[in-house]
């Protein structure tokens, strides 16, 4: 295991989100939901605007999630659990 010494404290967590602007992101939300979409904007509350978005609603295990497509969507920050670059 290589222990990375990243001593640049100038980086803060919201910078990761800034680097994802205009890219596809995966946003995990409360209530077993996920959103994938192109990140148009965000703020410090993690409110986000996604375009070309897909919402995945997971109801039961091993059952395909319900998928909803939206051209543009606003996600309120308080329901955000995590944000990660989308593999797409």
């Amino acid at each position: 295991m290589s222990t990375l010494r990243t001593e640049q404290q100038s980086q803060e967590p919201l910078d990761l989100i800034r680097f994802q602007l205009d890219e596809f992101v995966l946003v995990k939300l409360r209530g077993a939901r996920e959103m994938k979409g192109r990140l148009q904007g965000y703020d410090s509350h993690c409110n986000m605007v996604l375009s070309e978005a897909q919402e995945f609603i997971f109801s039961e295990k091993d059952v395909e999630p319900i998928v909803k497509k939206t051209e543009m969507v606003f996600v309120r920050g308080d329901s955000v659990i995590l944000v990660s670059p989308s593999t797409e």
Partner: peptide, 10 residues
């Protein structure tokens, strides 16, 4: 995940 941002309140 490659990099992952986790919102603080959680």
């Amino acid at each position: 995940y490659g990099d992952v941002f986790i919102r603080g309140n959680n």
